[in-house]
Amino acid sequence: MTVLPPEPGPWVLRNRSVLARVLTAPLVVVVVGLGTALWVSSVELDSIEQRTLNAGYILARVQEHLVLSLAAAVLVAVLAVPAGILVHQVDSGPLRTVVLGLANIGQATPAVGVVILLAILWQTGFTTALVALVAYAFLPVLRNTLTGLAEVDEATREAARGMGMTRGQVLRRVELPLASPVILAGFRTSLVFAVGVATIATFINAGGLGDMIVNGLKLQRFPVLLVGAALVAAIAILLDWLAGLVEDYARPRGL
């Protein structure tokens, strides 16, 4: 009798290593956050620092930062996944090269340059920062959508067609579910990109935690700089952690 692998268990608590992975990131964030808070409370703050290092100011910057980076990530998902599907379905070499080339340019161009150029040519503020972020974070989702769809086993696809699925049915019922882990991994990368790069929004007056980092540098107020940087890092780690959980949870069973 063949020994069969066990049934997939509950999604998170399959074993201790998974549990450790699930808990590590929040623990690191809590420890670093507490350490920073303790240190800041132990130093004497001057009036400039006091204006920045208070709950109202920090929460406002965090909110701006989150809204900007999450909006960018959602837009990337809404635009890059369909773009990837379209390129895959059309299956034309030149189209693929052009679309991937554009996305590559978006990512390769320094984001600061793009933001400032857009501000000069167009306007300053939230919308401009959003456009720059979307351009910058587009590639991982697009590339992973293309890769994920292309990696679907040819025999699986042929079986689906051979049973009479239309092209759309093959896409929805077979190709997209099988590609979803790869697509989600791309989205996770884009999300972390967006959180990091959203700090440059401050240069075009679009707020965010970049305000604290840049002010801290310009005015040589180390506590301000440190808190801003620590917060960006914490947000990036936590969002990456959340996206990881979604990846685990949304992964089709049986894969």
Binding site: T156, A159, G162, P252, R253, G254, L255
Partner: peptide, 14 residues
Amino acid sequence: GYVIQQIGLFPHMT
């Protein structure tokens, strides 16, 4: 009916 050598069962379905 269509059966191929690689079987082509859908791995994400029971």
